[in-house]
Every structure is written in C-alpha cells, then in structure tokens.
Write a protein that binds this DNA or RNA. Sequence first.
DNA 1: TTCATTCATTGATCCTGATCAAAGACTGAT
DNA 2: ATCAGTCTTTGATCAGGATCAATGAATGAA
Lengths: 223, 223
Amino acid sequence: MGEFRRATRGHEIVLDSRTDQLVFLADGATKLVVQLPDGSEQVLAFHFTGDMVHVPHRPGDRLQLVALDDCRAITFPTNAFLDAAEGEPEVLRTMLTRALLALQRSRNKAIRLGRKAAQERIADFLLAMAERIGIPDGTDIRIDLPMSRRDIGNSLGLTIETVSRQFTELRDSHMIATSGRSLVWLHDLEGLAVRAGQVAAQKVDPENCAISNKDLASPTMVG
Amino acid sequence: MGEFRRATRGHEIVLDSRTDQLVFLADGATKLVVQLPDGSEQVLAFHFTGDMVHVPHRPGDRLQLVALDDCRAITFPTNAFLDAAEGEPEVLRTMLTRALLALQRSRNKAIRLGRKAAQERIADFLLAMAERIGIPDGTDIRIDLPMSRRDIGNSLGLTIETVSRQFTELRDSHMIATSGRSLVWLHDLEGLAVRAGQVAAQKVDPENCAISNKDLASPTMVG
DNA sequence: TTCATTCATTGATCCTGATCAAAGACTGAT
DNA sequence: ATCAGTCTTTGATCAGGATCAATGAATGAA
C-alpha cells in the first residue's frame, strides 16, 4: 500500500499530490515548504529520522517535502492508511497522539513567529533544535544543523542576513560557538532560554536530548 | 466523564490544567491564548461553535481558553476520552481528522505570521473569518467579528494600531465596509485574495488567472 | 591540490510597523 | 437619555530588520 521513496539533498520527496499523504521518515532530515503565489517560500516545519509527517492536499498552493540530506521515506495516502487501520484502535490512537503533538509544535512555531524580536526567534529555534537533534558534548550541546541559514530564515520569517547577524551576536556573547556552516555548540542553555523569552522555566535538560529520546523509540509527527 | 462549562465574554473557560484537555465548543466563540513569561500574550487560535479544541498541558507557560462571547462547552481529559473511545474506531478517526485539520489551520497561521506585510496578514485573516463565520449578504459577505482589534493583532503579530490602519486602508480602497466595532462587509473577495498574497497580482498568464479564480472557492486558512 | 560555485558574514541605507500621544467613537450601566 | 470606561482611530516619531552591496569562507569537483 505504501510507497518507498529516496531523495538526496535538495531534492523533493515526490508525493501523490491528489490526496493527503502520510510520510514516515525512515532516515534523514526534511523541510516542509509552501511555495507562495508571489514566488517566495515559507518553511512550515523541519523533520528528522523517525518523524511522521502529514502533507495535506492543498489546492491553491504548492506544498513540497524537500530532503535536507539523504532521505528514505515511506508514503501513504492518508485515507487508505486510515481505512487499513480501522480495526486497530491503538494504531489510530497513536496517530492521534502524534497529530496532537504536531499541533503543539506548530503552535510553538506560531508563538516564535508572533514574537517580534529576531533574537528571541533564533534563541528559541536553537533550543528547539537542541531538543530534537542535540547531542551532549561535555557541558555543551552540539547540534549539526542540516538546514542552511536561508532555510532557518524562511522558517522564522527572517532574512538570511538577520539570521547571520544574530548568530554572530550570540557567538560574541559566548552563548554559542560555531564551526563551518552546520556545527553549533550551545554553551549557555540558561542564557539562551532567557534570550528566547522563556525566562520562567522550560530550560533544555541535557537528559532530554535526542540521544536519550531515541531510546524511547517513539517517532513523532511534526508540523 | 466530561464536564459542562459556561463562560461569558472575557472570562476563561476553566480547565483542569494538570492534563491535556479536549474541549468541544457547543456554542459561542473562543480564543486560545498563551501568556508569555515577559507578560505579553499570543493568540494561538480562534474557535467557533462546533469546533473541537485541544488544550495541551504545557508546564512552563500559561495556556488559557477565553470566551469571546457567551459560551457553552464540554471538556474531557484527553486520555480518559481516548480510553473511552478505544472501542470506537470511527470516533478516533473523526478526531484524528479534526486534529489534522487543526494542524492545517495552525500551519496556515504560521504562513500568515511568516509573511512579512501587515496588509497580507489582515486580508488573509478576513478571508479566513469569512469562510468560518461569514454570512452572504447580497454580493458581499458579512462578518460579525467577536474578537477585538487587540485580539486580532495578538493573533497576527501586529499592534492594535497597525490593525486599525490596515482596516482603514482596506475601507478607503473600497474592499471592505465596517459598522461599529464588530461588523465587517467584504466587498471584493478577489481583491482581498490578491492583497492576501493568495493570488499572484496582475501580469500573470491567463492560464494562472483561471486557476486562481477557481481557487477562491477552496477552503483555507484559519488559526 | 586548485578552482568554481554556493553559502555566510559584514557594512550602509531605507522602510515598515512599533511606540508614544491624543482625540474620537462605541458600549453598557445608571 | 446621559455618562464613564473602554475600544478604536489617527498622527508623529523612532527603531529593528529588510534590502542593497560587497567581501570572505566552505564545499565539491576536476
């Protein structure tokens, strides 16, 4: 019933655009992008190994799932998948739980975007990435970002220049360190949480990083 | 199992904040608001009669469901509700469908917020409201907005003044008319769609134009 | 290695929307 | 109806981030 797909960096994971699709990302990282009629594009979400992605059929605008590195995925038409799961309430329930989690992530994104300061968005983005793909490295958390500055900007409603300037400022204030285009070390999670406007609580616990999460083996759907 | 709740304008629909809640809005309109640690607030979504709302338990920040007018609702702890629905795949499937719809709306909100121009956000918001609570009135669509300019601004990442100025400009260009604080007539859906960036402005191939017109009828965007 | 291309950083200027301020309109209660 | 309080509109100024422009670094291929 499902179809296997491969894609290399920068290439679209081809989907049947006639109906809603469910995509299980077996390996790799992707971005979900909408091409707006004015030619610009908006990144709606990033996904990583194990995630389940819902790609709705949207007449009117172009929705693409693009590989950020080498990807393997299995795609299903949503309805067909649900029909098959009809006799398996626990499958439906799991999917519902993931869908609600995806909704939470999307709402978090809305909070990020509605928040005006560029600095808050960037700090929040880094903390969110730390939770999903961060790896403890001494007292730091190391992140290997698969997406470009442009992708980050498109995701946060900022330009590539503003993203770069914010990275520079965080580097100058010793909250992060970078190497090359993709490696980032988070030095000061608390400081980043403050800059992200999360002052009250919600700090990233190193134990909650992707490495330890993987043991739970609970794939998540992301929006 | 569920609990019945009433609330009048401006008052919170009290929820058990210890676990995720599912709220079925039997009657009325609400806003889902997050209180950010810095004291500001962000409107995550608006809801209307018949909507299902998921209010996750978010340790760290305060999430409130606030009545925009007189509301009646039934609330359930998500887990208890799902346990009870375990033997009813159709219920689960319906809820999953609704959750995916909510996800779509949230993504649309992200598109609105990521899009830079205030005018686009406002035009898009009005079209979204038209689809959800608009009433045909001659060649116009009439909307009775239950939320304040402040709510609209908080929802779109704009200030109350900017919202007001955009309304004024749309009025001056005869795309809308207003009466009092809540009544709005949409006069030119096509023009609004152009300002919303849903349709490429002028100078497009005739082919795309035809497609665009068709798309005006397709469901879209609410958050 | 070297080169070419793409991506990232830095600088200068401009513009949209935020902020500050004040006046005007609507709503609900008396 | 009148009034008080709140919400909305309008104006003036300011600032953050976009845009334009150029340099510098990283990656991949030959």
